[in-house]
Design a protein around this nucleic acid. Structure first.
Lengths: 222, 222
DNA sequence: TTATGTGAAATAGTTCACAGCG
DNA sequence: CGCTGTGAACTATTTCACATAA
């Protein structure tokens, strides 16, 4: 009772809350008013008991015997994740991937707004991408200062990613999402998350070969 | 005696092995011949003891008191991950993100070859993207059959992702990497990995707000 | 002496089973 | 009754500490 909300939500849970939020938004748009843990879990690709455990970190938010109120739950998760208000992001490196992200509607509808797109190549600067004009990377610090952007996304070549990271951190960005295939180091107080697209493919390839080649293992299903 | 390798490599380890492989390839290109667990761990952003434990799944591959031979270790990891030979992949949905992936050099250099790019839009079909010509999605099954592609990548809009997944699975693709923001279901024997780019941003946002408003309590009442 | 390889301890995360509320 | 919320059991993963080998 004196400890209603533990401040510690496991990171694995946070990642799944983001998925639940996406599913719930779809249900709201579809006019659904309530949903059970079983149905929501199935739509999110997780186990129902695990979903209930995840939601338990938000405090009680369902009705026993009935399920969860879709809109209420969505709002609650959005508040916990801190996406009720829009967050300013800057994106550095407008190659193919950067342009794809800048143009990806999924960000805008989920509380992220790109307030600055930057590239070092003069040929890129001035182009219109995803509703914004690409600016020279020299203006990065000024724009971060003006817009108070708290999130930076790096889609540059690997060679310059660390220096971009340093500049973002120095300019006051506290959270960095890096798509360049290098491990970045940032000062304390700055979070870095790494997304390596070919790591995902390699894990898939490994799981596939585990299934295909294991001569020591029984043929299995299928 | 050639079967002392436990067939069970933890998935978390597999993902890190892919990162080590990337770092090692960089070291080979840079002419380095040996590396210690500490240095490799630091370059990969992990703890040295954890790295050694990861490598222990491959059997002994270092020299005590010295470290690891860079080229040998790289080859060993590549073989375990099953990327010594190139794997045929198909990519469905050549929007911004799909074009970015098709054009991403990181895949080609790491053992993945796109043998077919597909899109439903006639305006896309025939375009040259990343060295291949975009084909109509109707040809998907034929190309999978011809090329024996074992991996499919989905970068379509969410609405059609499941049907593309079904077609890939029916055509014989055993591993699917999905970038569309929906949870896919596939028949047994088909692996699906989900990458949701805005989930990454939301986790970042949450960690950031944890830091920024350490006192704001989640729910209204207690 | 150095740096690997590894059991054992600690931690994180998942699943189960059922009590309890509507 | 049905479905949530949750302790308890279980599994996976990380970290530690040190024996071991060059």
């Amino acid at each position: 009772m004196t400890n209603p909300r533990p401040r510690t939500i496991p990171e694995a849970t946070v990642a799944r809350l983001a998925v639940y939020l996406r599913v719930l938004t779809g249900l709201v748009d579809g006019g659904r008013s309530t949903v059970s843990s079983g149905e929501l879990a199935s739509a999110a690709g997780v186990n129902p008991a695990g979903l209930r455990k995840d939601l338990s970190h938000l405090g009680p938010c369902g009705v026993r015997g009935v399920g969860y109120e879709v809109r209420t739950l969505r709002d609650r998760i959005a508040r916990v994740l801190g996406v009720e208000r829009s967050r300013a992001c800057v994106l550095v490196g407008i190659g193919n991937l950067g342009a794809a992200l800048a143009d990806y509607a999924g960000f805008g509808t989920r509380g992220f707004e790109f307030v600055g797109l930057f590239d070092a190549a003069p040929s890129r600067v001035g182009q219109q991408v995803g509703g914004s004009v690409v600016r020279p990377v020299e203006e990065l610090e000024d724009v971060v200062a003006e817009t108070q952007a708290s999130i930076g996304v790096i889609t540059t070549p690997a060679e310059v990613a660390q220096s971009v990271c340093d500049r973002l951190a120095a300019a006051g960005v506290r959270s960095i999402l890096n798509f360049a295939p290098v491990t970045l180091t940032a000062p304390p107080g700055v979070d870095v998350r790494q997304v390596d697209l070919s790591v995902e493919l390699q894990v898939l390839a490994f799981l596939g070969s585990q299934r295909t080649l294991p001569e020591a293992v029984v043929g299995g299903m299928a």
